[in-house]
Design a protein around this nucleic acid. Structure first.
Length: 109
DNA sequence: AGATTACGTCGTCAACTAAC
DNA sequence: GTTAGTTGACGACGTAATCT
């Protein structure tokens, strides 16, 4: 996983479950947050703001991912239902065709 | 009982899109 | 151009099933 300057793991956030504190491809140890791009951040205030911004963004994206997965599950369930309905319809039509053929074959001239 | 495998879930990143 | 939202991909973890 590529990690850019200001897109780092957020393992330093206190509420992060322990099992998600993993090391990064940049070689940072677990739980360590790399500083945002140096040319963008100068003062500690800016640093703190950037950190906060990042935490908010991660939190929003976390929720977005949950919602996205929920919607996907719902969509798949819908498709599965549709498949079941169509299979039933198909079965019924095949039966109907069979019955009609039967009638037609035994019809006296 | 411990090791391995398969599967589901989660958080994060990156790429993309739409709205501003 | 920037910003926020969406989603596929990835890696990590937990757990149940299976193997040795």
């Amino acid at each position: 996983m590529a990690v850019t300057g200001d897109e780092t793991e957020s393992a330093a956030t206190g509420d992060m479950p322990a099992y998600h504190m993993r090391s990064t491809s940049s070689g940072l140890p677990q739980g360590m947050v790399m500083a945002p791009s140096p040319r963008a951040i100068h003062s500690p205030e800016q640093q703190a703001e950037a950190t906060l911004k990042r935490e908010v963004r991660l939190m929003k994206n976390r929720q977005a991912a949950r919602e996205c997965r929920r919607k996907k599950k719902e969509y798949v369930k819908c498709l599965e239902n549709r498949v079941a309905v169509l299979e039933n319809q198909n079965k019924t039509l095949i039966e109907e065709l069979r019955a009609l053929k039967d009638i037609y074959c035994h019809k006296p001239e």
